[in-house]
Design a protein around this nucleic acid. Structure first.
Lengths: 205, 205
DNA sequence: ACCTACTTGGTAGTCTCTATCACGGTGGTA
DNA sequence: TACCACCGTGATAGAGACTACCAAGTAGGT
């Protein structure tokens, strides 16, 4: 088993990865994203530019981390098919947000907030982020498999998913502008209610 | 009046601009967006690379043209404030789509369709396009000025606008996948109805 | 005919990202 | 302990998207 070396080597790898990203986010926040070159990041992290590219294929990947995408899709696939689409999708989004901003991950929450503010204010990052959300939308539609036969149901699923993700985006922007003081899951619920009505997530909440 | 020269010079400028863009779209469709360089476009159009950059600041601008953005915003600002938000926004989107795909602009419609298919299938273009839609969303929110005082109304406006644009995107993707055979304004109405209910655009339609 | 302003072309450079090769330390094995 | 395969890192060269900066030609109005 040559794959059982995951103790020291993998830990060092994860460590340098965190170091590089931390320095990158700091520099981006201080000088701005466009005014910071990959060489600057490498120099600040104490590694060669090659190493930066090895861990983060593109400059945007230093800020944008696909977080919990497939977890959301799995949760939607596991939700009861009898419920309305919006409730299945919205519930998963609220739960994922709760996992990302819970009190047990306060440090990660600050980091997430800074990256989110960078994403919103930098055109290149914002564009990539929106495309990632589009990919998440495709994954969500794929998770609602049962309706591939009916083209009309597929249209419904696509409309519901894209509207839910639009609500998610609205909530995230407000959360970032509020500097993370508000409760993100609650904001998402509010945005969903603003579009679909107050009873979207069910009376149980 | 040094600005009254808009006869020959402006026409030549518009002509080269159209030539460059036409060759670019053709090459992108034939070889793929990433496999086509700006030098290829310049050579095909018979101009220098400098001239291409002069007319289209970025490679993405060769495909993405901000069409009718401010027109939509103006129409929303002029719509009666008493109507529900979704109806004001959705109505403007349907009308803009009708203007873009009407029978009197069949050639433009083919061109729009090709560019849309390129946008959807190319990650870089898709990302930029989604960011342009985000900018349009901001413009729409700005057009609904009356509610800047109430933060809750602002939240409502943002949620409504982003959901409407999500529906627009859903409709555009379906239209492109259908190769433009369907009626785009009708598709937008269908997507809006899928999210908000059948009576979104009012009984008058 | 003259002068201004707009359009175009050329050169050199920066920055992101890729391909290829070489070096050194890790982890397992004889 | 000595050997070897492998992984992480580094240096170099290069393509491609852009951005100054400067030179030349041509349309506009006086």
């Amino acid at each position: 088993m040559a794959e059982r070396h995951s103790t020291l080597r993998a830990r060092r790898r994860a460590q340098t990865q965190r170091t590089i990203q931390a320095h990158a986010i700091r520099l981006f926040s201080e000088r701005g994203y466009d005014a910071t070159t990959m060489n600057d990041v490498a120099e600040a992290a104490g590694v060669s530019p090659m190493t930066v590219y090895r861990h983060f294929p593109t400059k945007e990947d230093l800020v944008l981390v696909d977080q919990h995408g497939e977890l959301i899709a799995e949760r939607i696939a596991a939700s009861p098919a009898g419920q309305p689409l919006v409730r299945r999708i919205g519930g998963a989004l609220v739960d994922a947000a709760a996992a990302l901003t819970g009190d047990d991950v306060a440090a990660d929450r600050r980091f997430l907030l800074v990256r989110l503010q960078l994403m919103i204010s930098t055109p290149a990052l914002r564009a990539r982020h929106l495309d990632n959300q589009y990919a998440l939308q495709q994954a969500i539609i794929g998770a609602l498999e049962g309706d591939a036969a009916d083209p009309d149901a597929a249209f419904q699923a696509q409309a519901a998913a894209s509207a839910c993700l639009a609500a998610l985006h609205t909530a995230m922007v407000h959360w970032a502008e509020d500097d993370g003081r508000a409760d993100l899951p609650r904001l998402i619920g509010k945005a969903l209610a603003a579009v679909f009505g107050d009873d979207v997530l069910g009376p149980a909440r």
